[in-house]
Design a protein around this nucleic acid. Structure first.
Lengths: 204, 204
DNA sequence: AATATTTATGAGTTTTTGCTCACTTTTATT
DNA sequence: AATAAAAGTGAGCAAAAACTCATAAATATT
């Protein structure tokens, strides 16, 4: 488990089936993750779950970390897509409709892969000066979304601070609504209440 | 890494120095955690970081999981202590003072061990019918805290749903304020804004 | 069709890691 | 002081995991 001295480069897939193999491997990790068996995340088992040989895994990933890093990249792209779609559809809607769409998008993301965030946050080292991480990416997207509605907000508010709070509320409750919802609280109720909380905060 | 067939019992420490050894081992895990090097969480390295032999570790912990489980227990007790203290001091205060105290307590907990929650959530399997986990514990404590102020809340609100939302806001922002605060947002500002958000939600 | 390149395989090597146990040292008891 | 019990040690074992490499199959290029 200790970091190997260096991670040799691997060739990148050029043929279609090679790209498919890479996707299959990443999908297998998600499948294991959904089963919740974190200890089954070994390279050999990932290969087995993907239905490819261990050699194929190392054709495209220099080491185990790289598999998680690739998954991280794919997840970021997916979040961008989902959030972007919500923004595109509700760019000119009311603030309430926008927030509702964002909350729903967040719940969708977390429903698809409930444990992914925890895995990535423990397995992916934060890039020092490199690309933006998950929460920064979310912050940027939400900042853009809220900027269109600044006139509806009380004046004299720090936009970054407001977005920081709003992002955490939406993300945490989107996550919690899927994973930690107490008995007697429906998903729909949690969703609506989250929207209420965000709107109450923004208008306060 | 796969689960061993059975985990034999170990003797529990009776002398003072033995209890100290156990604490030293748990502290070492926290120290490694604070360094952020999740891959250094091997039994041998934990022993080395604690300055005890690997044999001593296995005097008191039947397997590696048990170390994390003990840490989990210790963390739950600490959270109970901190939250309980906040409640005791502000049992008859205003709602605003109470929320402020809870937010501060949450930030304190997360400041001490920023990565602990992530580790535990990935390494500790959820107890089937056993003791309550972290978020349930928090929910119970916050429910108690809020119950004293039901008269200040709008009527016709589901207490569990309200506590669910409030707990996630406080926990997530307490955590985020320490770990994911963007540049230009001070800790004090994040704390105050969290209080504002919770109060706005509760009064909405 | 012949050749080159990319992709896939998986048995086997090497490293890591969880854990044991025979033994020593320290503390408690008589 | 003698004896017993508890605590501590660390070399080393067995299992597991990361990763390699010689080889074969599939696809692309000539």
């Amino acid at each position: 488990m200790k970091a190997r001295p260096s991670a040799p480069e691997r060739r990148s897939p050029t043929q279609q089936r090679a790209r498919q193999t890479v996707e299959t491997i990443l999908d297998a990790v998600l499948r294991i993750l959904r089963r919740g068996d974190l200890n089954a995340l070994t390279t050999n088992h990932i290969a087995e779950a993907a239905g490819v040989s261990i050699g194929s895994v190392y054709q495209y990933f220099p080491d185990k970390q790289a598999i998680f890093a690739a998954l991280h990249q794919r997840h970021l792209a997916e979040v961008d897509r989902v959030i972007g779609s919500a923004l595109a559809q509700h760019g000119s809607s009311s603030l309430q409709a926008l927030i509702a769409a964002l909350v729903e998008a967040m719940i969708d993301v977390h429903t698809a892969d409930p444990n992914l965030y925890e895995l990535l946050s423990t397995q992916i080292p934060p890039r020092p000066g490199g690309s933006r991480d998950f929460s920064q990416r979310l912050h940027g997207a939400f900042r853009l979304a809220l900027a269109a509605h600044v006139r509806e907000l009380p004046p004299e508010r720090d936009l970054d601070l407001t977005v920081f709070v709003m992002t955490h509320i939406v993300d945490s409750l989107g996550h919690g609504a899927v994973l930690r919802r107490p008995a007697g609280v429906s998903l729909a109720a949690a969703r609506e209440e989250t929207v209420r909380a965000v709107l109450a905060y923004l208008r306060s």
